[in-house]
């Protein structure tokens, strides 16, 4: 398991996710450095982002199942000008769309790959970024 820490708890100035009752387990798992994805108990369909019901069978029953954390880059963009002041020292930075092995995607940032080395289909794997004592964000690195 890989951890990076980009935030200093006292100084973290970027927006933090506000968990909802439906997404709270997702963030709690990340805090424990585990990526879990919702899967419908009724029909087995994975879904992302977290929400109450399955759009295929309408079941509200679901389980949180461990995901491999591995996937490939589906697409990306490179941000060249700051929008939020907290990113002022970091741009340019790439925002990647990662397609996980389970079929759902995450939009996140990379920790180790310069944007000019990104390519569609590049294998990546999750790393856990403890940005505060309470919040861990998913990020990605080149798969080993």
């Amino acid at each position: 398991m890989t951890t990076v820490t980009t935030g200093q708890a006292q100084q973290y100035a970027k927006p933090l996710p506000r968990a909802t009752p439906d997404s709270e387990p997702y963030w709690q798992h990340l805090k424990e450095h585990r990526l879990h994805i919702q899967r419908c108990t009724g029909c087995g369909k994975f879904r992302m982002y977290p929400r109450p019901m399955c759009d295929q069978c309408y079941s509200f029953e679901h389980e949180w199942v461990p995901a491999s954390g591995k996937g490939t880059i589906y697409s990306w963009g490179v941000v060249h000008q700051p929008v939020h002041p907290a990113w002022r020292e970091e741009f340019p930075f790439a925002i990647v769309e990662v397609e996980l092995e389970e079929g759902v995607r995450l939009r996140a940032t990379m920790v180790d790959v310069p944007s000019e080395q990104l390519s569609i289909g590049m294998p990546v794997e999750i790393v856990y970024d403890d940005v505060t004592d309470e919040v861990t964000l998913p990020r990605f690195r080149r798969a080993l």
């Binding site: 927006p15 933090l16 996710p17 968990a19 997404s23 929008v83 930075f93 925002i95 939009r107 940005v131």
Partner: peptide, 8 residues
């Protein structure tokens, strides 16, 4: 807002 804004 929940999942992508924190990424920038």
């Amino acid at each position: 807002a929940e999942h992508e804004m924190p990424m920038g």
